[in-house]
Nucleic acid binder design. Structure first.
Length: 529
DNA sequence: CTTGTCTGCCCC
DNA sequence: ATTCTGC
DNA sequence: GCAGAATGGGCAGACAAG
């Protein structure tokens, strides 16, 4: 009988996980497989399940970073680290001579949680945060060590989606606010450590410096002379330097990411700056937007087609017509819509928080302004996690009259209520087909778990249309060997009043694609894709 | 060498 | 990215 | 309203397979 491998320890699992993460190059996949195999063989009980989940970076235990921060805050309020090591080195403030009551501890815990969360948002690094806590720091003393500084990306401030102009009015009434065009590119947090050391970070705090040497150059030239350091918030957008025109997001994504040299860059970008969190060592996150914007304009000078500021308009009061007009202008200007931000009141930079301060208003949130499409579910995929036992997503198609076939435009996995998911599953499990209908035009890569009879029409919504390497609608019309797919698709409702043959046609898909401001006006659209 | 498949603390 | 749901 | 967990299109790179 084979010997059972020794029990797994936390230290062992941690070092194996690190080894897997760092494994690269030829035959690395084999090496990773072997390590995983060893871990699984040595695991007992439920350990295997959690090892697999760890590898997938999906622990699904109801705890993510915010909860972890709360736990840290509570732990360092209830207990204090001592000078020596080991379990005895901890003072439990709930017991002993100097014990505190729950009523005394609670406000401390709440205050500590705020401090820990603020510290982590300005300095998102657990090593540094825990080190500071172990020193016994709390409250303002924690912020002194863990505060915004150049070279450490802060969690960018996010915006809350708004359902319509009426909702915007509710949130912002009585406050001065500004609307800014929302550009369709890549978030870029620019850190100027000195005139010669400039770094760029993504929305998720990934270092993109290597990807944008051209931006580094132009920022260096655009900085005012008296700027030694700063942090700028901006959007990088693909830009046609010749025709002075914003290009679609899809063009931006074709830029190389590694070993980039300025000479062989094929996709140029323009930087649209909109905020500034630090200048010359001085944090500005607690200052109101109006002042931060002033600072931003004073440290950066525009360079035609390379660096500029997000177009904005200030409002002293709600005016729905003017907001609508400004939104329309932003769409015509190849933007996604508007960002709406308070200027003075509640106008600080709140890293990572989708606070009320920033709202986003996109045309696809608005009834009537969005591309609404009628599609036919022709396949389904088994759900995972909380969607086990039902379909988690559906393959959706439109009907092409000319070729008399169903062509895919997207999958959909969002927009369903729990009830929708149940209803759809019980309906479609009686309309399964053993294989694809002969008039289904589906790429092999999208092969669903089950095929469905074309017997229902759904209304879905999307933000945009894009050239697709896998979807087959309007195949070859806008680009050779490619169809058209939908960006950010979501389920809206069942259309009982339509038959599958009455779903959106491929000509309409082409029209919607061409109507997009960022692709219109170019004769040779094909060349861009 | 080409081609296919899968991953990414990916971007949106 | 969007969306829904439990708390 | 927050936190968490479902799910989308599509790209360059990395690696495997042939």
């Amino acid at each position: 009988m084979l010997m059972m491998p020794p029990k797994l320890t936390i230290a062992k699992v941690f070092s194996e996980m690190k080894a897997i993460a760092h494994s690269a190059g030829k035959e690395s996949q084999k090496a990773k497989k072997e390590k995983i195999q060893k871990l699984l063989v040595a695991s007992r009980g439920e350990e295997a399940k959690f090892i697999v989940r760890m590898l997938q970076a999906k622990l699904r235990i109801g705890i993510q970073i915010p909860t972890l921060l709360q736990a840290l805050a509570y732990a360092f309020t209830l207990t204090k680290p001592g000078k020596s090591c080991g379990p005895a080195a901890v003072t439990d403030r709930r017991h002993g001579q100097a014990k505190l009551s729950a009523a005394e501890l609670e406000p401390q815990m709440i205050g500590m949680e705020a401090a820990v969360k603020q510290a982590f948002s300005e300095m998102p690094n657990f090593d540094k945060l825990v080190a500071a806590l172990m020193e016994g720091r709390d409250g303002s003393s924690l912020l002194q060590v863990c505060s915004i500084s150049v070279g450490v990306p802060v969690k960018p401030m996010l915006a809350k989606p708004s359902k319509g102009i009426a909702e915007v009015g509710e949130r912002l009434s009585g406050k001065r606010f500004t609307g800014e065009w929302k550009y369709d590119g890549e978030r870029a947090q620019i850190h100027v450590l000195s005139k010669d050391v400039i770094q760029i970070y993504s929305r998720n705090s990934e270092n993109m410096t290597e990807k944008y040497p051209d931006v580094i150059e132009v920022v260096k030239q655009s900085l005012a002379e008296d700027v030694q350091s700063c942090i700028i918030d901006s959007e990088l957008v693909a830009f046609d330097q010749v025709n002075r025109k914003i290009l679609p997001f899809q063009v931006l994504t074709t830029r190389g990411r590694k070993n980039i040299t300025v000479e062989d860059i094929k996709v140029n970008v323009c930087l649209f700056a909109f905020d500034c969190m630090l200048v010359n060592g001085q944090p500005l996150v607690k200052e109101p937007l109006e002042l931060r914007r002033e600072k931003l304009w004073s440290i950066l000078s525009p360079a035609e087609g390379k660096v500029t500021f997000a177009v904005y308009r200030n409002f002293n009061e709600i005016n729905e017509e003017e907001i609508q007009a400004f939104l329309d202008e932003s769409i015509a200007g190849s933007c996604e819509g508007l960002m709406l931000k308070t200027l003075t009141e509640n106008a600080t930079y709140e890293p990572s928080k989708r606070s009320l301060n920033w709202l986003k208003l996109k045309k696809d949130y608005l009834e009537g302004m969005a591309d609404s499409i009628d599609v036919v579910p022709i396949g389904a995929y088994y759900g995972k996690g909380k969607r086990s036992g039902a379909y988690g997503a559906y393959l959706l198609a439109i009907y092409d009259q000319e070729n008399e076939e169903f062509q895919t435009v997207c999958k959909a996995g969002t927009g369903f209520s729990d009830e929708d998911l149940t209803t759809h599953y019980s309906f479609f499990k009686n309309h399964q087909r053993p294989c694809a209908e002969t008039n289904y035009n589906v790429n092999d890569k999208l092969k669903p778990d089950v095929w469905l009879e074309p017997c229902q029409v759904w209304e879905i919504r999307a933000a945009d249309l894009s050239i697709s390497p896998v979807h087959t609608s309007a195949f070859g019309v806008k680009a050779d060997g490619k169809g058209i797919g939908l960006r950010f698709p979501r389920f809206l409702r069942i259309r009982d009043d339509k038959t599958p043959e009455e779903s959106t046609g491929s000509e309409q898909i082409v029209e919607m694609f061409e109507a997009q401001a960022s692709v219109s006006g170019t004769a040779a659209v094909d060349d861009d894709f």
